[in-house]
Write a protein that binds this DNA or RNA. Structure first.
Ligand SMILES: [Mn+2]
Ligand SMILES: [Mn+2]
Ligand SMILES: [Mn+2]
Ligand SMILES: [Mn+2]
Lengths: 217, 217
DNA sequence: TAAAATATTTAGACTAATCTAAAAATTACA
DNA sequence: TGTAATTTTTAGATTAGTCTAAATATTTTA
């Protein structure tokens, strides 16, 4: 059995692995988990002896398939609990992450599979992230960043890159939600801001906001 | 904030307090929590400095009102999660205790109050134990042990004293469930066994089984 | 390509929760 | 009521996860 802490390390490594081909560095993990590099080194040694990561001193780490499987299962738990909190317990999408961070570590196949069924096998969490199935398979949406769209193009809002409270609250305030069909009305060349239309309203998004929004392609 | 471990100690002390007027002894707690008396002593000192228990060396402990409040909140969490698992996720009543033992330690007022509402404010868990409300108030059922009933008396089966897997499975096998109306047909004076009728069937219960069953009075 | 800057690891220490073994206090009962 | 049995506490270790400070390796850059 793996501790909460070990699972959090594996999850962090998994997420960084998605965006690098090289190993994930000690410092990267330390920053993400709000801990010190020396603590990370200690944990990496431990995870390596458990065959959950490939660790070569000074050169960062990758997950073994055993490690990846655990990371995916924790992510599955996290995202299913987020769906539960939003859909059944009336939480807002910007309130669920920290609770899911605790619930994800409760280890019971039956619990999570029954929860999955109870929720009707959702494919994405409230922020648009895909939910791995019970075999760890993730169905990746094909999506592109909104900033790559041109005037008059449109698509479904499917994912937020930055899912911090602040950003999610901004979206909620403007009733801009995942699943909404968005049309680009015009792009201001001066500051790359986007004027969009959705659900009978219009809104101007700064470039940095547009870059946090992904559209199904 | 209190650790899982501290909460488990408080809960254990609370439960023993219900059946003794004296302080709860070190050994009693050690047995319940599968640990050693010396470990218990250490923890009692710690809980005492946090003002959660009244501790006088060699004379056992009682909860302070602060400690009792925490114990009741953990118990509330435990029992509400058990209801959730049975009613929403199709668990059997003999499968939920260990999972609830983990879920009970997730500390969020909003989570538990919303769960309570989602479950329609249940008053009892799947084993008949009362669920404290959000202020820690427990509505105690007035109930008596089945062995105190006489022939031809009847009532509703509301609580099991022994909620071990073994006993719960025995009851399930005989379709004898909480909420069932039970009538005592006769009591065999030789071995104090009970012949009962419920839900169109009859069953003979040994004295020790009868003693584990409580009936609403 | 050799400093300088940066990243990583090692060494040694700390805390929470646990343990075993031994000492001390309480309680049981002859 | 004094000794034996039992219970509880103390003393000293251990383990997981963390930290700071120092040492070492890698990377950058002049
Ligand atoms: Mn999340
Ligand atoms: Mn977590
Ligand atoms: Mn239980
Ligand atoms: Mn517990």
């Amino acid at each position: 059995m793996n501790s909460f802490t070990e699972e959090n390390y594996l999850k962090a490594i998994y997420k960084f692995s998605l965006t690098t081909k090289k190993g994930v560095s000690t410092n990267t993990i330390a920053k993400k988990l709000n801990t010190k590099a020396s603590s990370v080194t200690d944990m990496l040694k431990k995870l390596a002896t458990k065959n959950l990561i490939n660790y070569k001193k000074y050169y960062g780490v990758t997950l073994t398939s055993k490690g990846e499987q655990i990371a995916l299962s924790v992510i599955r738990n996290h995202r299913l609990w987020e769906v539960f909190l939003v859909e059944k317990l009336n939480f807002k999408w910007d309130e669920v992450h920290d609770l899911a961070e605790e619930l994800e570590h409760i280890k019971s196949e039956k619990l999570i599979n029954n929860l999955d069924a109870f929720l009707n096998f959702p494919t994405n969490d409230p922020h648009g992230d895909p939910i791995p199935n019970k075999n760890g398979k993730i169905k990746n949406l094909k999506m592109i960043n909104m900033s790559e769209l041109k005037a008059n193009e449109e698509g479904i809002f499917v994912y937020v890159k930055d899912s911090s409270d602040k950003f999610l609250k901004y979206l909620s305030k403007n009733k801009l939600e995942i699943g909404e069909r968005i049309k680009i009305l015009e792009i201001e060349p001066f500051d790359n801001s986007f004027k969009i239309a959705y659900n009978n309203q219009q809104l101007i998004l700064s470039e940095s906001i547009a870059k946090n929004i992904y559209i199904q392609s």
